[in-house]
Amino acid sequence: MTYIRTFLNIIALPLILLAIWFVSTLGETSFFVPTPQALVETFFETWTSERFVSDVFPSLGRLMIGIVLSILIGIGAGLLIGSFRWLRALLEPTLEFFRAIPPPVLIPVIMLLIGIGDEMKVSVIVLGAVWPILLNTIEGVRSMDEVLADTSRTYGMNKINSVRYLILPSAMPQIMAGIRQSLSIALILMVISEMFASTEGLGFAIVQFQRSFAIPEMWSGIVLLGLIGVILSFIFQLAERWILGWYHGLREIEQAA
């Protein structure tokens, strides 16, 4: 029963929007706005398996590498910076400055420095996506519960075990919130990085379609991007539920009390 309800909740709004779209494009002949039926047809015609191999998979590959690197660098550096007060005081203003720079404007610079290959595209993704994870990890480490830290100290917890069993899990709720933000940033930057000096990729394909006035194809690419975003957030939610199960349980009990 609740599953059906959840399912209805999820698809209700998309259905309504589709209906509005359908009705408003009835008898419409505008070149720039395809009808739903035409778009669905185009979607399957455009995104064939060859296209997946030539454009979508390379994009997804760079996206994944970018996300994984952002997570590793963000958490690693965050643990380090968060653990030392002086390091934090030293670095935080500078980090805020770098965070404030929109990564797309760095693309020309990065192109000059490391060329136009995959490294450039991954770098752009990491340069944008690392910040929420890094800053959230620092904050998560900083807001460690004092009693819990004292407890660990009295039991003589060594450095590695402290990180593994105390610092990392205790910062995990904030880290996950950072990762969630980073995912959407990474997706955006994946597309943007492929709009410069590229020969393949989802962003490249969409720009190509637009330049050659293949408008329904262009729209279908945008739909595909949306779907990737949805799948990404779905995977994230599964992972979060698994990693932060304890946190949600604790929360529920605190709120009930």
Binding site: E146, V147, L148, D150, T151, Y165, L166, P169, M172, Y247
Partner: peptide, 18 residues
């Protein structure tokens, strides 16, 4: 090494993720 402490704030001295 040979000392253990039990704190008043039991809710905050146990690891909630364990």
């Amino acid at each position: 090494k040979s000392m253990a402490v039990v704190f008043q704030e039991y809710g905050r001295s146990l690891f909630p993720w364990l």
